[in-house]
Design a protein around this nucleic acid. Structure first.
Lengths: 233, 233
DNA sequence: GCTGTTTAGTGAACGCCGTTTACTTTCGCT
DNA sequence: AGCGAAAGTAAACGGCGTTCACTAAACAGC
């Protein structure tokens, strides 16, 4: 009662409604068509009133990004946990990757918002990703973790094609992770990202109507590179 | 004189100036900040006057896309041709890929426009890519060509991880290229695109400040997969 | 229960945008 | 010289984000 007064509850409900309508606009017309005036119109309010809840449109969009990262991360975690606690890290990675792709294609405008170029005013969002509390960092972390487990088990493929010395010099935060893990992770991640982004952004419209075979090929290739592990840890 | 009257020349000069200013705005503020009114203001004109040259803002942006594709393609072709006519297809591909990356990082807003998600109203641009005259298709073609040469020489790496049957069913235009070539091309292309797009869009801000080692690693990996060819054709 | 304060919401305005319409000027050609 | 096409203008419409002064309602403390 003291923690959540009546005022606060109705306020949170209003904030939720704003974000709900914002997302509906995002889905309907892409990142650029999220507008305070349209939200206010649908809520039967004045646009100025929304400034009691968000300092600017940018802030609303950034919150939307955070929510979306949390949503896709939760879906990936669910798929991962459905495999059971003793599942092979490789299988966990594959399940998460497929879930990520499924979410992105089922929610193209949302995926475009968080995986595409930053909308003006949202650049800072990506820049704050170094913060571990950041939703984007949390999302990335669930993919890093199984990779670390593979490394600890000595199963990580070698990153022989990556110049580790130069890569080490290009990292913002040194030493948190072994450079080999970083190299393999980044290589694998950008490959998946490439297939996904290319399809999301229509860059493959001239070449393929469905990129699932390409995505699966990257997954298969990654799995084939990992050294086989014992039956259970 | 008859082909290009005085009227036409001054008109082309005006069109060029409009596109020049549009690009300057693109560079300064990203794709969303290209505005007819601002262009007109800088030209000492009324916004309505610009409609004598472009039917809408979208059309101007699409023309800008075409110009940018032509520009980056020309740079890649120059780098390719600098290798001489007898250069190995692999070397030509590597040179073009590096040139592409160099151009993209030197012209980030422009690269974001053509390699990122379509700006609202420009979706049709990507959709028209099936037309071989399309600037985007021409750009892609210069990367396809050496790949075909490798295939003809029997040097193409096998695409064993790609389900060729399913991929064949996901192509818009069947049979123009052997499916193996398509598979290798798309896999290689999306890998490069992944590294490039991830850096362009700030998706790797938390992980790396410079993706050149990753890009070079993909190039090295590709080169290592291609079977060695004779000294000269 | 009244009073003072915080909060939510309004209305009008400012300046930006794309686009359309009707009108005027200017240029080129016969 | 005069006619027709092309280029450009002015004004308007509706949309946008944002600010500011103001009102109405809910809350707090006495």
């Amino acid at each position: 009662m003291s923690d959540t007064s009546h005022r606060e509850r109705v306020r949170e409900r209003t904030v939720a409604e704003i974000k709900e309508l914002a997302r509906r606009q995002l889905v309907a017309g892409g990142p650029a068509s999220v507008s305070l005036r349209a939200i206010a119109r649908e809520m039967g309010m004045t646009a100025a009133a929304l400034y009691r809840y968000f300092p600017a449109l940018d802030a609303l969009v950034i919150e939307l990004c955070t929510d979306l990262y949390d949503e896709v991360r939760a879906e990936c975690e669910t798929a991962r946990d459905a495999l059971g606690p003793a599942a092979d890290p490789v299988d966990r990675l594959l399940a998460m990757a497929r879930t990520l792709r499924g979410w992105a294609l089922a929610h193209r405008p949302e995926a475009t918002l968080i995986f595409g170029p930053p909308v003006p005013g949202v650049e800072q969002f990506h820049e704050q990703c170094l913060d571990l509390e950041h939703a984007g960092a949390c999302f990335g972390a669930i993919f890093v973790q199984p990779m670390v487990e593979l490394w600890e088990a000595g199963r990580l493929p070698d990153a022989s094609h990556v110049d580790l010395t130069r890569l080490a010099g290009a990292l913002p935060s040194q030493g948190e992770l072994p450079i080999e893990v970083t190299a393999v992770f980044l290589t694998s991640w950008t490959r998946l990202y490439g297939v996904l982004a290319a399809e999301l952004f229509g860059q493959l419209a001239w070449a393929a109507t469905n990129t699932e075979p390409l995505f699966e090929a990257e997954l298969a290739f990654f799995a084939s590179q990992v050294k086989p592990g014992g039956a259970a840890g």
